[in-house]
Amino acid sequence: MIVTIGGLAVRIATDDPVFLGILRQQYAAFTGAETDGAPIVLEVELTPPLLQSPDEDLAVRFDGEAWEMRRGDFMARYDPKTRRGQVRQSANRHSIDSVIRIIHSLELARAGSGFLLHAASAVRNGKAFVFSGVSGAGKTTLSRLAPPDVCLLTDEVSYVRKGDGGPDCGRKSGYQAFGTPFAGELGKAGENIHAPLGALYFLEQASGNRIGQLGRAEALRMLLRNILFFAQDPKLVEQVFAIAEDFIETVPVCRLSFRPEALVWELIR
């Protein structure tokens, strides 16, 4: 099965019918034809549940050749040169979902082209808007309040990367937001579409609806705090820093103070 997110295809190699069923349900709108052309291949070895302690923290390390990822519920290894990896996990969606997120974050950082962000995102009038914030800031609330003309890309993890210069790439910034299957409290995958990025908003619940500008330093700090990044690697951290810096120089970054009511969407156009 091939899962394509943000234009990056990952082939998940498994023959297990139960696991394939889980994958089809999880990634329904993001699956492609089964071909050998996918650039990344993950071979999944299914094991009994709980390889290690379920409370074990995620650790991502580069051993000089490949990335090793380990958490209580999975172990994985991914070689960025061959673009092949192996995953050991039980037949569940959470583990493979985490591995896919990590690989995407590593590949985006390696290419210096984008990032995954703790954020909801949506498309309106042909432009994408990203709404970032910590848990409780209102990502899912805002998503639930979206009017019918808004296409939700995700309520939890947004995918942002520079366009490839094609006709539909960002007209001004060059950044685009892509739909993801990574769902939060809404429990629903985003639409598999992408659009030029209009603005990034950091959410703050308030007594009224207002958009305020952020200074560059504050914008950079808030952006870095919300980028999903797992690797203990100075070179990649430098790449993430560089792309975040480029992003805030080219995309409007604002604070969106809002009341949990549909009227807030009047500001998002």
Binding site: A217, F230, A231, Q232, D233, P234, L236, V237, F241
Partner: peptide, 9 residues
């Protein structure tokens, strides 16, 4: 100055 430590992000 904004500093990020790669050891723990």
């Amino acid at each position: 100055v904004i500093v990020m430590n790669p050891a723990d992000s």
